[in-house]
């Protein structure tokens, strides 16, 4: 009974309205993410990026509309179904959210030990495998406090991937990383997508990383309380009609010239952010 299209749609959001109490943050947001896609949710500060993420991972319930993740209606699903869904996706939090009292290896092994019946020997090898995939082999016995910010993120990613999720969420993956590390993480995201076909959803405002890895994006606006642009970021950058979208993609004309932006623009410092 499953429709053919449902098989290749990982996330479907239709008519989502999100609010905190009486404050409405998003109205009537609809978009969908295909399987195996690297999808970015862009937007300025306070535009509701994190709100959408919270709705996608079931930490917030929509005021109206429906959120379907991996064919499960997040808003309507009973708790046991949600729990099953949660083991099918991983979330990389902004600062890694590693458990400080456990070593890196214990952190990565935790979901494996708690949520599966795999023998200990298998868990140990799996932990090593996951750490190897993120380039942290040999770091099993270090504590999160002993890691740098970039290593903590990668360890968090290894933990998010512990259960071979179909879907990975990244909250601000490049925040707090230097350009080299951020690029490394971008490459890792694409590599993992290519190797595992994992659907990747990035919540970010790092344009460089979006241009490098994202297949499709949506741009949220705080004023419009919803989506103001959707599609291939490189296309949007070139042909956006709305001033708001153009400003975002050109950093108000300050962004270093890439395709389609006149280089003279970047040398002009705008006044009053116009």
């Amino acid at each position: 009974m499953r429709a053919t299209s449902a098989a290749d749609i990982a996330i479907e959001v239709s008519g989502l309205t999100a609010s905190y109490g009486h404050k409405v943050v998003l109205t009537n947001v609809s978009f969908s993410v295909k399987r195996g896609e690297v999808f970015a949710i862009l937007g300025g500060s306070g535009s509701g990026k994190t709100t959408i993420l919270r709705h996608l991972i079931g930490q917030a319930r929509p005021a109206a509309g429906a959120v379907k993740v991996l064919d499960t209606d997040v808003a309507a699903a009973p708790e046991d179904q949600l729990r099953r869904l949660r083991s099918r996706f991983g979330v990389l939090y902004q600062t890694g959210a590693l458990f400080g009292g456990m070593t890196v290896g214990e952190n990565v092994g935790l979901p494996l030990r708690e949520l599966t019946n795999l023998p200990d020997a298998a868990v140990d090898v799996l932990v090593r495998l996951k750490l190897r995939l993120v380039g942290l082999e040999g770091a099993e016995n270090l504590y999160p406090a002993e890691l740098s910010g970039g290593m903590r993120k990668r360890a968090g990613l290894a933990r998010a991937m512990a259960l071979d999720p179909d879907l990975l969420f990244f909250d601000e993956p490049s925040s707090g990383l230097d350009p080299v590390l951020a690029a490394g993480l971008d490459r890792l995201i694409v590599k993992l997508r290519d190797a595992f076909g994992t659907t990747m959803v990035l919540v970010t405002h790092d344009l460089d990383s979006v241009m490098a890895v994202a297949d499709r994006v949506i741009l949220l606006s705080g004023q419009a309380r919803g989506v103001v642009a959707e599609g291939d970021p490189r296309q949007i950058e070139k042909s956006a009609a709305r001033a708001e979208v153009r400003d975002f993609f050109s950093r108000c004309g300050l962004r270093h010239a890439s395709a389609g932006i006149d280089s003279t623009v970047t040398n002009r410092i705008p006044e009053n952010g116009q």
Binding site: L126, R128, L129, E137, G138, N141, L142, A195
Partner: peptide, 23 residues
């Protein structure tokens, strides 16, 4: 698929694992 790639990652012994395991 990526079976072979994963297999080599799973089989490889990180060279410095032993030295780092003991604090």
């Amino acid at each position: 698929g990526n079976f072979d790639e994963l297999l080599s990652a799973a089989s490889a012994q990180p060279p410095d694992l032993r030295t780092r395991t003991t604090a």
